[in-house]
Write a protein that binds this DNA or RNA. Structure first.
Length: 100
DNA sequence: GCTCTGACGATTT
DNA sequence: GAAATCGCCAGAG
């Protein structure tokens, strides 16, 4: 595990239940505002489902984004935490957004 | 060291 | 407002 991935996972791990954040926010949090793509790659390579709530990471435009086990699963998990999803978009995104 | 390849993002059509 | 375009950074081969 590289240092970069380590940082990403650590940050994602502190997202509270029922809240979401974005890839961009994570990038900013680790001091690499422009490494958004790399962040996505890092999370994708680590389906540490139990360790890291990677399903709470969405796109900055409020769309759900992708998921290792399919967006279906991702949406399901988010709903189970009380987050509403409509047509692939997170409802009240600005409210439940968690800036790291 | 170079060339792809992305769980992305902002901008421009 | 949807789709195409370009930029960006870290891994993998």
């Amino acid at each position: 595990m590289t240092d970069f991935q380590q940082q990403v996972l650590t940050v994602v791990a502190r997202i509270p239940r029922g809240r979401v954040t974005t890839y961009a926010a994570i990038a900013r949090a680790i001091g690499r505002p422009r490494a958004v793509r790399a962040v996505g790659t890092a999370v994708g390579n680590n389906p540490d489902a139990p360790k890291v709530p990677c399903h709470r990471v969405v796109r900055s435009d409020g769309s759900v984004g992708d998921y290792a086990f399919g967006q279906k699963q991702k949406i399901y998990l988010l709903r189970s935490e009380g987050i509403e999803i409509v047509d692939g978009q997170v409802v009240h995104f600005s409210r439940i957004f968690f800036d790291l």
